[in-house]
C-alpha cells in the first residue's frame, strides 16, 4: 500500500485546468519532488494533498484512508512554506509545541518531543528565542521541526528554501534529506530548481500544464527524459528533428550519426536530444559529423561554451578548456557521443 495515493486528481480555476487527471503513488519514507515551471500546477497539487485547495475530481488517499473530503486539520499532514510562516508571537519552543498541543499531547511529553525535534535541526539552544530573533535559515529549521514533531503521515514542503542564499540552501537540502531518511518520513517537496530536485529526491515528478510529464528516479529524469518538455526543463540544450535510418543510425539533415539502439521503425521522423557536455567539436570537416561555424564562445572557467551554426540549426557544446579551444568563425564539425543521444517520445 503506498503512503500517498493520488488518483486522477483534477482541478480548475475559472475554467483553466490547473491539474488534469494527475495520478501518482508515493511509498512510505520516500522523498518525491514536484518539479516544474511556475504555473505548472505543482503548488496546487501540494495544496490539494494538504486540503488547502479543494479538488474537482479524483481522490487523495493517505495511508489507506480516503482524505479527499477530510478537512485540513484532520489529515495528519504537516506543511513547510517558503515564508517560514512561524507564529510571530510565540517562542521557538511554543511554535514547535503547537501541533502537539492541538493533538492533546500532555505537557511533559510535549516538552520532551519539542526538545528532541529541535535537536534534530540543531537548534536545541534556541528554545526561548522569538522567531524574529533568528536568521532566515534558523527560522526555516524551526518550521521543519514544527512540522516533523507531530509525526505527520506526509510532510509537504512548498519551495521551503526558495528565499535562502545558495550556500545555505545546499546545507539545508542535505539536512532535510538526512532527517527524512532517519525518521522514515514520507515527504513531498515542491521546487522549480532542477538541481535541488536531483540532489534531494528519491524520485522526481516533472510537471507541466497540470500533468505529470515524467515521474522517475532523479538519474532517469536527468539522463532519460521522457519527452521534449522534460528534456528542455532538465537542461538538454540541443534538441533536433531527425530521421531514423536503422536501429543504430539517425539522419540529421544530410549527416548520418551513430547511436545506441533505437526502438523506432526506420523511416520515422523523431525528435532527439543531447546535452552540451556530450557534444564534441573538431577542427575542419569530418565524416559522420555536422559541419558548421563557431558563432559564439563563452568562457565558463573549467569549460568553454560554444555555439556552432550548422545547416540544421545552432548546436551548443561544452568543451573542457584543457581539451581544445576554438576561435570565432572557425570552420568546425560537431559530433555526438552515441551513448548520449536520446530519442524523445512525441
Amino acid at each position: 500500500m503506498p503512503a500517498l495515493d493520488i488518483q486522477s486528481v483534477t482541478k480548475s480555476y475559472n475554467k483553466l485546468r490547473v491539474l488534469d487527471r494527475v495520478s501518482a503513488q508515493i511509498d512510505k519514507g520516500e522523498l518525491v519532488t514536484l518539479l516544474g515551471p511556475s504555473g505548472c500546477g505543482k503548488t496546487t497539487l501540494l495544496r490539494s494533498i494538504a486540503g488547502l485547495a479543494d479538488i474537482d475530481e479524483g481522490r487523495i488517499v493517505l495511508e489507506g484512508r480516503d482524505v479527499t473530503k477530510v478537512p485540513i486539520h484532520k489529515r495528519g499532514i504537516a506543511m513547510v512554506f517558503q515564508s517560514h510562516a512561524l507564529f510571530p508571537h510565540m517562542s521557538v519552543a511554543d511554535n514547535v509545541a503547537f501541533g502537539l498541543k492541538m493533538q492533546g499531547v500532555g505537557k511533559a511529553e510535549r516538552e520532551d518531543r519539542v526538545k528532541r525535534a529541535l535537536s534534530l535541526v540543531r537548534l536545541d539552544a534556541y528554545l526561548t528565542r522569538m522567531p524574529h530573533e533568528l536568521s532566515g535559515g534558523q527560522q526555516q529549521r524551526v518550521a521543519i521541526a514544527r512540522a516533523i514533531v507531530t509525526n505527520p503521515t506526509a510532510l509537504l514542503l512548498d519551495e521551503p528554501f526558495g528565499a535562502l542564499d545558495r550556500k545555505l540552501r545546499e546545507t539545508l537540502q542535505v539536512e532535510l534529506r538526512r532527517l527524512t531518511k532517519e525518521l522514515g518520513i514520507t515527504a513531498i517537496f515542491v521546487t522549480h530548481d532542477q538541481e535541488e530536485a536531483v540532489v534531494l529526491s528519491d524520485r522526481v515528478a516533472v510537471m507541466n500544464a497540470g500533468v505529470i510529464q515524467q515521474i522517475a528516479p532523479a538519474v532517469d529524469v536527468y539522463e532519460n527524459p521522457a519527452n521534449e518538455f522534460v528534456a528542455n526543463f532538465m537542461g538538454f540544450q540541443n534538441i533536433f528533428d531527425a530521421k531514423v535510418r536503422s536501429a543504430q543510425e539517425l539522419a540529421i539533415g544530410d549527416t548520418v550519426i551513430a547511436t545506441d539502439k533505437i526502438d523506432v521503425a526506420p523511416g520515422e521522423g523523431i525528435r532527439m536530444a543531447i546535452r552540451a557536455e556530450r557534444v564534441s567539436i573538431t577542427a575542419g570537416h569530418r565524416e559522420g559529423a555536422i559541419p558548421g561555424q563557431v558563432s559564439s564562445s563563452t568562457y565558463l572557467g573549467e569549460q568553454n561554451a560554444y555555439v556552432v551554426d550548422t545547416a540544421d540549426g545552432p548546436v551548443t557544446a561544452r568543451i573542457p578548456t584543457s581539451v581544445a579551444r576554438f576561435s570565432m568563425g572557425e570552420a568546425v564539425s560537431v559530433s555526438f557521443d552515441p551513448a548520449a543521444v536520446r530519442v524523445l517520445a512525441s
Partner: peptide, 15 residues
C-alpha cells in the same frame, strides 16, 4: 500577519 501562518496552524491540526 502572514496568512500562511494560519494555514500552517490548520495543517498542524487546529480547526
Amino acid at each position: 500577519l502572514d496568512p500562511l501562518a494560519e494555514e500552517a496552524a490548520r495543517t498542524l491540526g487546529a480547526n
